[in-house]
Amino acid sequence: MTYKLILNGKTLKGETTTEAVDAATAEKVFKQYANDNGVDGEWTYDDATKTFTVTE
């Protein structure tokens, strides 16, 4: 399945996607991606759209 991440960081905004077997796996990938890019904030997940959002 394809999962999407929306980044609403103070210095980085954008979107990315990943292929993962489940939401938990996608979340690990996205949290590492956000961490690597210096984005740390509040996370939400919408199962209907398979979209994670992180907002600083």
Results as ranks from 00 to 15, higher is better:
1 M>K: 12
1 M>Y: 15
2 T>A: 06
2 T>S: 09
2 T>K: 11
2 T>Y: 09
2 T>F: 09
2 T>M: 13
3 Y>Q: 01
3 Y>M: 02
3 Y>L: 01
4 K>E: 03
4 K>M: 08
5 L>H: 00
5 L>V: 04
5 L>R: 00
5 L>A: 03
5 L>G: 01
6 I>D: 02
6 I>H: 05
6 I>E: 04
6 I>G: 02
7 L>V: 14
7 L>G: 02
8 N>C: 10
8 N>D: 11
8 N>H: 10
9 G>Q: 04
9 G>C: 11
9 G>M: 12
9 G>R: 04
10 K>A: 11
10 K>V: 13
11 T>A: 12
11 T>M: 11
12 L>K: 13
12 L>M: 14
12 L>V: 14
12 L>R: 10
13 K>E: 06
13 K>M: 09
13 K>H: 11
14 G>A: 13
14 G>F: 11
14 G>W: 15
14 G>S: 12
15 E>S: 14
15 E>H: 11
15 E>F: 14
17 T>Q: 11
17 T>S: 11
17 T>F: 14
18 T>S: 05
18 T>D: 03
18 T>Q: 05
19 E>R: 11
19 E>G: 06
19 E>F: 15
19 E>L: 13
19 E>N: 12
20 A>W: 02
20 A>H: 03
21 V>G: 08
21 V>T: 12
21 V>P: 15
22 D>L: 04
22 D>T: 05
23 A>Y: 14
24 A>H: 09
24 A>K: 11
25 T>L: 07
25 T>V: 08
25 T>F: 07
25 T>K: 07
25 T>P: 02
25 T>S: 14
26 A>Q: 00
26 A>S: 02
26 A>V: 02
26 A>P: 00
26 A>T: 00
27 E>Y: 15
27 E>Q: 10
28 K>Q: 12
28 K>M: 11
28 K>P: 03
28 K>V: 11
28 K>C: 08
28 K>G: 08
29 V>F: 15
30 F>M: 03
30 F>S: 00
30 F>T: 00
32 Q>D: 07
32 Q>F: 05
32 Q>A: 14
33 Y>T: 03
33 Y>D: 01
33 Y>V: 05
33 Y>Q: 03
33 Y>H: 04
33 Y>N: 02
34 A>G: 03
34 A>L: 09
34 A>S: 05
35 N>E: 13
35 N>G: 09
35 N>A: 15
35 N>P: 02
35 N>Q: 15
36 D>I: 11
36 D>F: 08
36 D>W: 07
36 D>H: 09
36 D>K: 07
38 G>K: 07
38 G>I: 04
38 G>V: 03
38 G>A: 07
39 V>Q: 04
39 V>N: 03
39 V>T: 04
39 V>Y: 07
40 D>R: 12
41 G>V: 02
41 G>C: 02
42 E>A: 10
42 E>T: 13
43 W>I: 03
43 W>K: 00
43 W>G: 00
44 T>F: 10
44 T>N: 11
44 T>I: 08
44 T>P: 00
45 Y>D: 00
45 Y>H: 02
45 Y>F: 08
45 Y>G: 00
47 D>W: 09
47 D>H: 08
47 D>I: 10
48 A>R: 09
48 A>N: 10
48 A>Q: 12
49 T>Q: 06
49 T>M: 06
49 T>Y: 05
49 T>H: 06
50 K>T: 04
50 K>Y: 10
50 K>D: 02
51 T>M: 04
51 T>D: 01
51 T>W: 02
51 T>G: 02
51 T>F: 02
51 T>H: 03
52 F>N: 00
52 F>I: 01
52 F>W: 07
53 T>Q: 06
53 T>C: 08
53 T>R: 07
53 T>E: 06
54 V>M: 05
54 V>P: 00
54 V>R: 01
55 T>C: 06
55 T>F: 09
55 T>I: 08
55 T>Q: 07
56 E>D: 08
56 E>I: 09
56 E>L: 07
56 E>C: 05
